[in-house]
Amino acid sequence: MSGTVNPVYDWQQIEIFTRQILGKKAFQDVCTLWQENSGQQSGNGAKQPMRLYIVNDGACPGVSPAAGSPVKSVKLCKRAAVPDYPKNTITGTKKTRIIHRYSLILLTEYENGEFRVITLPRQLSAPGSYRKGSTMAFCGMISTDGQTSVPQRMNDTGCSEKLAIIPEGNSFSAFEYMLTFPLNAFEPAISPVELENPGLKSTIILSNLRYETDIIEPVTVPAGEGSLIWTTAVDLMVYEDITIKLGVDQDIIVQGLSEP
């Protein structure tokens, strides 16, 4: 821009298209993969790491099964979001809900130096529902019938969270994390008129993904039909920051000069 001051009569009417942010809410360090305290399914407990029982390398089901090689370390390689997720909905009770579906890809190192890639929840099974060639880990979030998810819930001052596993055929396709919170949590608060605006749009940003793993100990898990299989108990938690913005498109007219 030139250093000279342009007189007001040189100004012109300029129409600008922009998006006005009506409200914003940022959640820091949200744990999106967890398990409730054992025995508490009420949603009032505390988040605990998800306990995975990763099948030892070389372990096979049996009455007196071979121990195989236990897990030495676990690394999260990738978190893949299901297409069209995360998404946002406004509920009838004037709350907003963020729904996120994702899968995790873990790189597992065993004591014998072997490495394996595990896709969760696709290769997860319930204890007692071992599927040869498919099951790489067991988890308590799947009911004993091996077909349905046991949702984990958490309620805290108006906000509620739910974690479930989405079934697909005989296996599971994704974790589904839901975060529901009142609309007055937005900053600034969203008015009812703004809420009914047919042009209302939202954007969700998931950032700063990080995780915690803890190798516990080798343990036998029921594999079904009276057999057992050797696994290694591993605790896993995933955290991230979740930001959601609500806004509307705006055409605004200003008086001024545009850069040539």
């Binding site: 998006r19 978190r79 946002n88 909905t89 406004i90 809900r97 749009k201 954007t203 969700i204 950032s207």
Partner: peptide, 14 residues
């Protein structure tokens, strides 16, 4: 892991 940004989408009323 790269951040996930959905971009602006119309809000769905349940």
């Amino acid at each position: 892991c790269p951040d996930i940004d959905t971009g602006w989408k119309p809000v769905i009323h349940e």
